[in-house]
Nucleic acid binder design. Structure first.
Lengths: 341, 341
DNA sequence: GATTATTGCTAATTCGTTTTAGTTAGTTTT
DNA sequence: AAAACTAACTAAAACGAATTAGCAATAATC
């Protein structure tokens, strides 16, 4: 039922046309002319015919024979999230540089979907994968690692599983974010975060606590958990509570929380940073028109993408399984509203 | 030099273990037990062993034999652009539903990169491609079509090339956008756009002109071209000019232009829509914090993605080359600032 | 002038599937 | 009891490339 497309030209067709054996064609095509001393005459003739017939090697045959296809799989948790869209773009570029092709998929933060995607990728014979694990995907990642499939986790790691990862140093990021508010003179600093078991969230929470403790604000520690599903409602509620409790600054553990938080503050006609100071995470172009000064913790996306690909390709090309775990450092960057320009 | 991974179990290993020929194993694995009347006993035994040895069919061999691999290639012009990130996500979902795997790449609006990506995809044996052509890619697309590679253009078509495409009806979108401003009572309506030969831009420009003419505003037609490379500078200049000429509304032909335009108006302390009304294209989350009411032309991304995949898979599965060209309709949607909620 | 190298090529195998064309043994039909 | 069927299986070819082993012919060596 499949469309009948023109029959492909194979190495044999070229050989027949050139009056030589397929072996020679293969030699020439793979730059082994010297090694197998194919005469220049014949080599030129072969190259000529290859061009004439517009020969393209068959990747299936090649991969079947060689057992590799220079393809890696990349599964992020949400491709439509600018942070990951950017990551994906960088990964693709680096992979290309390293001679690999990257296959992308998005799990939409659902472990069942992640499992499906992984299955499909492995069936497509990717040699290794870069995965952003989602909540509840521990077992999936565990089998992946147990099966010795070259794996690099991205953005989040799983504490019990010994494998490669490239994440932000979330503890430090949480610490630095909190510390920066403390140094600005705030005392009643609250944290707004998701109640997730994911390492990135855990790390940020820990960092927040640690900073508060070290600066003698242990009693001020106040963590508000919001829900991903009813983000707006739970954020609104959480912020109302914080404010009623006299909170003067808040660390928002993700970009989505930051956005919701700022929206509600705007609704309440509260000014940032005068009435309440806000520290965000991973700010994107949502803030193009936000008109108060604001600080963010930003991740070195490009470096992280590069590292992830490098680790993976290195595993694929070397003989044994060392493990590399990288925690990148976040940077505090400032958003300046337009009117200040 | 490649990592020595455990030898894969093949159909032969299973056959040996079960004491039957590989043929039977293949029959059972492909659900042809009935058709080739394999005894239930043997079939069960085979299935048992398949599970035991954790056999996974080799995709290369399968594809080599069958000549297909149910994979399509998708090249967008910029994966980090939310509009395309969204498109990609939708395409992936639909493709999966249709039993296809989608391979993604981003050309970053560079025709050389597009050419590279296409080459790599075709070498990976994708059966067809969905491509967002970029400026200067006409020849690349032409050879693609000439080579009979199943192709669907997305977002932009190329007038001289007879092939499938799914685009916005940009002429109508430009018309409707302009008309909506006219109906609000504006007369001095200007268009801000890129000087590109891409069909989507051309269409929007035409639509603008058409609306102006039909409503008797031909003499008011004023088109300002801005440059992609120095977007901020050229936008600033263009807007200053428009305002000095007494313009009271502007249609921005892309989202990037809309953002720049609004930023500059904010800088000039001009109010939207009182001082100058603005009509944007493809608004995203950049406007979360934009505090004036604003209208956009938005595209039915999901439907477009679906159509593109459907057209492609249909070509792949049917016998001959009909051509489908779809122009989707845009919708005007309103952005309401927070304080109005 | 016999032996050994070197040059330039080919045949044949392998990778793991799918599928077509058989084969064998057992069962009906006449 | 010969002829025709059927059920249950197997052998072999094919997909397209890479590679190893080997075979002529010519050239170099002693």
């Amino acid at each position: 039922m499949t469309a009948k497309r023109a029959k492909r030209v194979s190495i044999k067709d070229i050989a027949r046309e050139a009056g030589v054996s397929p072996t020679l064609v293969s030699f020439v095509l793979n730059g082994k002319q010297k090694q197998y001393r194919v005469s220049d005459q014949i080599a030129d003739r072969i190259r000529e015919i290859v061009k004439q017939l517009d020969y393209k090697p068959n990747g299936f045959a090649k991969s079947l024979r060689e057992g590799t296809n220079n393809t890696i799989g990349v599964i992020v948790s949400d491709i439509a999230n600018p942070f990951f869209a950017n990551m994906v773009k960088n990964i693709e570029n680096v992979a290309e540089d390293r001679g690999y092709m990257a296959l992308f998929a998005s799990s939409d933060e659902k472990s069942e979907k992640l499992s499906d995607q992984l299955g499909r990728m492995l069936r497509k014979e990717v040699e290794g994968v870069i995965v952003v694990p989602c909540e509840g995907s521990d077992d999936i990642i565990r089998t992946l690692v147990d099966k010795r499939i070259p794996t690099v986790l991205l953005d989040r790691y799983i504490p019990d599983i010994r494998t490669n990862y490239v994440c932000l140093d979330n503890r430090k990021a949480g610490y630095d974010a909190t510390e920066s508010l403390i140094k600005k003179g705030h005392r009643h600093i609250s944290l707004l975060c998701y109640d997730l078991k994911l390492s990135n969230m855990k790390g940020r929470i820990e960092g927040y606590k640690e900073a508060m403790e070290i600066y003698g604000l242990k009693s001020e520690i106040k963590i508000q958990y919001v829900s991903m599903d009813s983000l707006e409602r739970s954020c609104t509620k959480a912020i109302d509570k914080l404010i009623s409790e006299g909170c003067d600054a808040v660390v928002c553990a993700t970009n989505s929380i930051t956005v919701m938080c700022l929206k509600h503050l705007q609704r309440l006609k509260l000014n940032v940073p005068e009435d309440i100071d806000v520290m965000g995470f991973d700010g994107g172009n949502e803030f193009d028109f936000y008109d108060s000064p604001l600080c963010f913790m930003t991740q070195p996306t490009e470096t992280m993408a590069k590292k992830a690909v490098d680790i993976l390709t290195h595993i694929l090309q070397s003989d044994e399984g060392f493990i590399t775990q990288i925690e990148a450092e976040g940077t505090i960057s400032e958003h300046r509203p337009l009117r200040d320009n």
